[in-house]
């Protein structure tokens, strides 16, 4: 059973809200990492066209880097976000979603890959830096924000709602 795509307006509104939370969540790094991962991996890849998704992912990366004072501001996060968003969008087209469990498993795998790629890109751009625990909280909370994204994206879009 293939799920129908959510509406374009809803997706972009959700992306904008998530981006605002990323910016406002700067004093709480764990929460910010969760919002960031949700925006890049769950919301942006399905924001209408791939170009829109890429722009949302870039915005998420630059917002995160810009909100952290002791973090290198060289675009490593933005590039990693862009890459992961494109990858997630391609995966959504290549292997369409068929249920919540598959969605959560995919998000968990993408979260791990996202953490590795972000820190790798930042290291390439500058040098070694502390990782922090944001990746851990993002991975731990995959069921929560994955379920929420599932509900918000696919609510009222047809027979795929669960």
């Amino acid at each position: 059973m293939r799920l129908a795509a959510p509406s374009l307006t809803r997706q972009n509104l959700l992306c904008a809200a998530a981006l605002g939370l990323v910016a406002l969540g700067a004093p709480f790094p764990a929460l910010q990492a969760v919002f960031h991962a949700a925006l890049v991996l769950a919301l942006a890849p399905r924001a209408g066209s791939p170009l829109f998704g890429a722009l949302w992912a870039l915005a998420a990366g630059w917002t995160l880097e810009g909100s952290l004072r002791l973090y290198p501001h060289l675009g490593g996060t933005a590039w990693a976000d862009l890459t992961l968003a494109l990858l997630a969008g391609w995966m959504a087209g290549r292997w369409p979603l068929e249920g919540l469990k598959g969605w959560l498993a995919r998000l968990a795998a993408l979260s791990v890959l996202h953490a590795l790629l972000v820190h790798g890109a930042v290291r390439v751009a500058t040098t070694a830096h502390p990782w922090g625990w944001g990746w851990f909280w993002a991975l731990l909370s995959v069921p929560a924000w994955g379920w929420l994204a599932w509900r918000l994206l696919h609510a009222g879009t047809g027979p795929g709602r669960r």
Binding site: A54, G75, W79, L82, V124
Partner: peptide, 15 residues
């Protein structure tokens, strides 16, 4: 998209 990705990647590689 390709230009965006390559541009950002180049920027990151330049350090």
């Amino acid at each position: 998209l390709a230009l965006l990705w390559l541009g950002h990647g180049t920027w990151v590689l330049l350090g």
